[in-house]
Simulated assay, not measured.
Amino acid sequence: MSKIKTWMPLYIGDYLADTASLSTLQHGAYMLLMMEIWRNGPIQNNPRRLSRVAKTDVQTWEDEIWPELQDFFTVVDGCLDQKRLRAEREKAEEISKKRADAAAKRHASKQNACKTDANAEQMESNSSANAHANAEQVHSKCSASGHANDIQKDTQSQSQSHSSLRSEDVGCNRAAEIEKPIADRWQELAEDVIAATGNNPARSMVRADCVRQWLADASARGYSFETATEIILGTVREKSRFGGKGKPPAWFNSPVTQALASGTIPSAHIVGNAPKSRADRVADAWAGVPDIPGV
């Protein structure tokens, strides 16, 4: 079932102002009709069909309910519809689509990162194999020619070339590691933060600029965007349960700042050091390759 079908916005002030003259029976029928239209679209304008949706009989529908409710609806192509409800549904669908697209982009980005890491590991393996092959070739030349000085010069030259290639390889990998700063991705997180505070992102007018600063702090501490998101949302959700529900994001500034400083994800686990980048992992891999005499 679509998430949109599981909830419907209700602006209580507007609703009570528009329906002040309705009876209890009419209120119930009105709500049931709006929920049916929200979930399944316009309803066929037929008394028998409408009375079933309103959970009443046709006689009661025609005598006590419909005369008071008919001004709240419009009939389009023989079906009962509600203008405000349709506008809210379209807005909710647009927001849902944007979030789905953003999630798909993040998933694609993670897949590309995995492919890059796999290529880096292959390069590490090939470089290690070449290093051992060069070492064997150097020792063969030494035993065949007997010219120790000349061979020593050749060996030193190959060692310098190999070291240069290894340095360039790490440098290239570091260049590929450069990504968009996580602080520039704050808008991806802002809507989720607003929702975690108990506000409705679709109509909330609260400012969420503090999310940008939170991500800047997280970046300075070496966190990835995903880890920073876990810490920030975890803290906001926990504080919302204890007096923070409905507050603007800026209200959570102090606990979020403290959580980023300590690396704590509430009700989950303690975050350690930020994960190493691919370039750092390449450098660590080369550090583990034993030195070969003369190479």
Results as ranks from 00 to 15, higher is better:
Ser109Arg: 11
Ser267Cys: 11
Arg49Phe: 03
Ser2Arg: 15
Ala175Thr: 08
Ile265Thr: 10
Gln156Ile: 04
Ala287Asp: 15
Ala274Trp: 01
Val282Asp: 01
Ser21Tyr: 07
Val170Cys: 12
Cys114Ala: 14
Arg174Gln: 11
Ile37Tyr: 00
Phe242Ala: 07
Asp284Lys: 04
Lys5Trp: 04
Ser127Tyr: 09
Ala190Val: 00
Ala190Tyr: 00
Ser267Trp: 12
Ala216Ser: 15
Glu238Asp: 09
Ala261Tyr: 07
Ser254Phe: 04
Asp280Ser: 12
Ile65Tyr: 00
Ala148Trp: 08
Ser204Gly: 05
Ala268Thr: 06
Ser2Tyr: 05
Ser143Pro: 03
Thr6Asn: 11
Asn253Cys: 10
Gln122Met: 10
Ala129Trp: 12
Leu16Arg: 08
Thr197Glu: 00
Lys276Ala: 15
Lys239Cys: 09
Ala190His: 00
Trp186Cys: 01
Leu233Ala: 09
Arg52Asp: 15
Ala261His: 09
Gln258Glu: 14
Phe225Gln: 01
Glu94Ala: 09
Ser23Ala: 09
Ala133Gln: 13
Phe72Asp: 04
Asp184Leu: 12
Glu64Lys: 14
Phe225His: 06
Gly171Ala: 14
Arg166Pro: 03
Glu136Phe: 07
Ala118Pro: 02
His27Lys: 05
Val211Pro: 05
Asn40Tyr: 14
Ser51His: 04
Lys245Met: 09
Gly13Thr: 13
Asn46Gly: 09
Ser219Pro: 04
Asp280Arg: 10
Ser163Asp: 15
Glu191Met: 06
Asp184Cys: 06
Thr74Arg: 10
Ala195Ile: 00
Thr264Val: 12
Lys153Ala: 15
Gly243Met: 05
Leu215Ile: 03
Thr24Met: 08
Ser277Tyr: 01
Ser164Thr: 13
Ser277Pro: 06
Lys247Ile: 03
Asp18Gly: 07
Asp291Gly: 08
Tyr30Val: 01
Ile43Asp: 00
Phe252Val: 01
Asn200Ile: 02
Ala285Gly: 14
Ile95Thr: 09
Glu168Val: 13
Val76Met: 09
Lys245His: 07
Asp117Asn: 12
Val256Cys: 04
Glu168Gln: 13
Val271Tyr: 04
Thr264Lys: 13
Gly246Lys: 00
Gln156Ala: 12
Thr264Ser: 11
Phe225Arg: 01
Gln152Thr: 11
Asp169Gly: 06
Gly263Asp: 07
Ile151Thr: 14
Ser2Cys: 05
His27Trp: 01
Ser262Tyr: 03
Arg212Lys: 13
Gly234Phe: 00
Trp251Pro: 03
Thr197Gln: 00
Trp214Tyr: 04
Ser267Arg: 15
Thr56His: 00
Asp101Lys: 06
Ala118Arg: 08
Met1Asp: 06
Leu260Met: 10
Ala279Ile: 01
His132Asp: 12
Ile194Glu: 01
Thr24Glu: 08
Ser240Met: 01
Pro266Gln: 05
Glu230Ile: 02
Ala287Gly: 09
Arg84Phe: 05
Val256Met: 02
Val211Phe: 00
Met123Val: 08
Phe73Leu: 02
